[in-house]
Design a protein around this nucleic acid. Sequence first.
DNA 1: GATGAAATGTTATAGTATTACATTTCTAGA
DNA 2: TCTAGAAATGTAATACTATAACATTTCATC
Lengths: 184, 184
Amino acid sequence: MSPSMSPSKSEPRAFLDIGHDHSHCVADALGRAEALCAVRGARLTKLRRRVFELIWASHAPVGAYDVLRRLSEEHAPAAPPTVYRAIEFLLEQGLIHRIESLNAFVGCCDPAEEQHSGQFLICESCGNVVELLDPKISKAIEESARRAGFAVTGSTVEVRGICPGCQNGGCKSGGPRNGRASRG
Amino acid sequence: MSPSMSPSKSEPRAFLDIGHDHSHCVADALGRAEALCAVRGARLTKLRRRVFELIWASHAPVGAYDVLRRLSEEHAPAAPPTVYRAIEFLLEQGLIHRIESLNAFVGCCDPAEEQHSGQFLICESCGNVVELLDPKISKAIEESARRAGFAVTGSTVEVRGICPGCQNGGCKSGGPRNGRASRG
DNA sequence: GATGAAATGTTATAGTATTACATTTCTAGA
DNA sequence: TCTAGAAATGTAATACTATAACATTTCATC
């Protein structure tokens, strides 16, 4: 692996290195996805693999219709269900996550982790997202829910802000996707 | 206030009492909204007030187009910007929250609280939502972000699950809005 | 090769949100 | 009171996101 590498499994994650060799991220992700699907007997078809690659094309979430456009450029024009079905498969396998506040999708950094509800740091400047798996956050949520008598089945944690790279002059990468300036 | 009352300010919140007198929730919320807007010099116009009431019509989040339909029933047919502009105002004033995972809006239980990013428990059975303001959750998120060098501007925490009422036989109220069965 | 299940293609439509411009209403100052 | 200017609302068109329903193709197995 390159010296400035992608976030790897089971380590605490810092924010992305600027200008890291992203082809490694993609290759690693594909490798993990293939291995997992093989173990599970899930079929990572050519189309699904391609959608997975397009979502992994950057660390910024990608919209379904962006995927659709690129897919349509590559072969015959595709229709929405083509993409949404592939996305559904990838979500079910835990290979990607949906970012609710952006209506977009991002590759999962650790798909082998069972049933994790990741936490996401979303940079409002460059658009990049980093996934955390912080047990303290999960635990605080679980305890709070338990006190309320609420039986948790899943959770969404999306944190907006500015990443270290952008604080220090900019990550230059594409810039953010839509997003809403909500008060909270 | 009635004996089975709405969650009130600055107390730890339990889940909603089944069959509580909801008119009190609405009246209280309206009172708080009017007071806040008066202090701030913000104009809670007739239209904005009505949209606020429609969103507070239950403890389940309400979609913009639901508000639109009801508004259209009441007077002349309205168009989307009418509702979205009122919603924008209410969000800016912190009087309502957007539930990202449902594309819907819910009344804020504590609009006087400065810049809070509430946490939401969303019942997948009855559709009701309770807002928490748990400092442990906020703190865990802030610390995790700080470790990553990430400067937080806001956060979304939405927890899916089953509320105590529905665990014990059901809340009967309307049932949930769309929602996605995401893995995490 | 036949068969059934899974995946993909195709068409249509539903649901959510914004842009751009016209009109009305409100407020403050002359 | 009258009147600008600002704020709010009305209106029309359109963009973006997602799903339903049904046809066809591909794949694994027998």
